[in-house]
Design a protein around this nucleic acid. Structure first.
Length: 201
DNA sequence: TAATGGATGTTCT
DNA sequence: GAACATCCATTAT
């Protein structure tokens, strides 16, 4: 059987381009042999020294080291005292870059996501970076995982996104001038980000 | 429906 | 000691 896992070359490109192309791909998490998955509907791009909003802006540290490594790996970090965020590394080895996965449209394993998140509406199960990692049971034990080789978490070809919208990134004070947030226009699983921010600018 | 602020802990200055 | 790639309940309109 042919695997439809996305190859490493896909991630070895200009980060905003990878972030845009990831919308429509399927994110798969496997726990005890069961698939939990969904279509990626919202992402953000982060680069290196010229991107003041990026963790890699001030160079390599023990936390962000994965961003400087080979493309196609998971960069998982803990934030705001409560939440994990899942990123996919991009660009050639030595060039920092990562795409933050902000929301998915659940497909398989919805019952497991509900168990992880509590009884809430399906369109909010994995909407927002902290909610996504909680729904899929992702923690720092997956930091540095190779998404091309792993059987615990990986990306597959999904479906064609209808239309890609862009906006400034959510929750960052620096780098407001770049529109490096990408989402499927009109999709109800996309997180609102900030209250009252226009979703179809 | 929109705005505000608290919980909570790691990382870096 | 300050900042932080968040989330959600509470408050005001």
């Amino acid at each position: 059987m042919k695997r439809s896992v996305i190859p490493r070359e896909f991630f070895c490109r200009y980060t905003p381009e990878v972030a845009s192309d990831l919308v429509g791909c399927r994110l798969v998490r496997v726990i005890r042999g069961r698939r939990i998955s969904g279509i990626v509907v919202e992402t953000e791009a982060y680069r290196g020294p010229k991107d003041p909003a990026s963790h890699a802006y001030r160079g390599k540290t023990s936390r962000n080291g994965v961003m400087f490594g080979p493309p196609g790996h998971a960069y998982v970090y803990f934030t705001m005292g409560m939440h994990f965020c899942l990123n996919v590394t991009t660009e050639p080895t030595g060039t920092p870059g990562a795409v933050l996965l902000r929301a998915i449209e659940p497909e398989e394993g919805i019952a497991v996501m509900v168990k992880n998140r509590g009884p809430i509406a399906v369109d909010r199960l994995a909407s927002g970076p902290g909610n996504l990692t909680k729904a899929l049971g992702i923690g720092k034990e997956l930091d540095g995982e190779d998404l091309v080789m792993s059987d615990r978490i990986f990306l597959e070809h999904g479906r064609m996104a209808r239309e890609i919208g862009t906006s400034p990134r959510v929750g960052v004070s620096a780098g407001r001038s770049t529109r490096w947030r990408f989402f499927e226009r009109g999709n109800r699983f996309v997180s609102r980000g900030r209250p009252s921010s226009p979703q179809n600018p």
